[in-house]
Computed example of a mutant assay.
Amino acid sequence: MRRTIDPYVYLLASRRNGTLYVGVTSNLMQRVAQHREGTFGGFTAQHGVKALVWFEQHATMENAILREKQMKKWRRSWKIDLIEETNPDWKDLAIGLGFLPLD
């Protein structure tokens, strides 16, 4: 059986206007769980970056990777503007996907 790939680019934050992380994944639910549990390791685990504040689905993984690379070069203010366009209160969007609120 073939694994379904749902390419996403996403932004995590430690808090409103806090530390930001741009990532790409083929399984958003699994990746969000990894970040929240700290099992993904690296930057997000070290800096407590767990709240999903923005995400965007893409047709192909190649498109998602290109978008992630583009966004990693962005100024911080552009990333904040992108978040605030659709999530002005910086709510943890993972709750709407079935995750429990963060402590």
Rank of each mutant, 00 (worst) to 15 (best):
I83A: 05
I65W: 01
P101Q: 15
M29Q: 10
Q46L: 12
K91I: 05
G18L: 04
W54S: 13
W54V: 10
L12A: 11
K69H: 05
V24W: 00
E56G: 00
S14Y: 01
I83G: 01
N63A: 14
I83V: 15
A64T: 11
E56Q: 14
R75H: 05
R31F: 03
G48V: 09
L93W: 00
G38Q: 07
A51I: 05
V32Q: 01
E62L: 08
E62K: 07
E62G: 12
E85A: 14
P88D: 13
V53N: 00
I5W: 01
S14N: 09
T25G: 03
E56H: 07
T86N: 09
A33C: 03
G18E: 07
M29R: 11
F55V: 05
E62F: 01
L12N: 00
V24H: 01
A13I: 08
Q46V: 07
V22L: 05
L100H: 13
L12R: 00
M29N: 11
D92A: 08
T86F: 04
T25A: 04
N63S: 10
N17C: 06
N63I: 02
R31A: 06
D81G: 11
L97R: 12
E85T: 15
R2D: 10
A33Q: 09
L20M: 10
M71Q: 10
K72A: 09
L102E: 11
G48T: 08
T4I: 13
G23M: 04
D89T: 09
E84I: 06
N63G: 07
M29E: 08
W78Y: 09
